[in-house]
Design a protein around this nucleic acid. Structure first.
Length: 117
DNA sequence: AGGATGACAGTGT
DNA sequence: AACACTGCCATCC
C-alpha cells in the first residue's frame, strides 16, 4: 500500500503548525498528527513534501534534539542555517530551545495526547 | 521473494 | 551516557 495521502497531509499540517523559533521532534509531530509511534512516517512525509507548501521542515529534529542529517552534509548546513536565522542556538550538535527542555513544544502547546484541533 | 534501509522512537540494561 | 532490542512500514536492492 502506497502511503495514504490523507496521512501525509495530516503530517504536513502538523509540521506547518510549529511556531517560528520553536522546534518539535518527529515523534512529537506524529503524535500531534494523531499517529503515535509513526515517527518514521513523518520522515517519509517530509521527504515527499512538495516544496510549494513551504513547510517549516527545518523545525523538525530527532528525539535527541539534533538534526537528522549527517553533520557536514549540505542538508545539515541548510537546516542549521535556517534554525539559527530564527534565533535558535546550538550547543555542539544539539539545539537548545532555552530552558532544560531541548525540544520544548509538545505538551506545552498542544496539551495531552489526542488533542488535535 | 525476502532482507536491508530509512529526515525515528521507546524501553530496558 | 551508550548500547541493544523492538515497533513501524513503504521502498529499495
Amino acid at each position: 500500500m502506497t502511503t495514504d495521502r490523507a496521512l501525509l497531509e495530516r503530517i504536513w499540517a502538523a509540521v506547518a503548525a510549529i511556531p517560528r523559533g520553536r522546534v518539535d521532534s518527529y515523534g512529537g509531530v506524529a503524535r500531534r498528527a494523531g499517529l503515535p509511534r509513526r515517527a518514521r512516517l513523518v520522515g517519509r512525509a517530509l521527504r515527499l513534501a512538495p516544496p510549494e507548501l513551504g513547510l517549516p521542515w527545518h523545525r523538525v529534529l530527532n528525539a535527541a534534539g539534533r538534526i537528522s542529517f549527517p553533520a557536514g552534509s549540505d542538508a545539515y548546513a541548510e537546516q542549521r542555517r535556517r534554525l539559527e536565522a530564527e534565533g535558535l542556538r546550538f550547543v555542539g550538535e544539539r539545539v537548545e530551545a532555552g530552558g532544560d527542555d531541548p525540544v520544548g513544544l509538545d505538551r506545552a502547546l498542544w496539551g495531552p495526547p489526542g488533542g488535535l484541533p
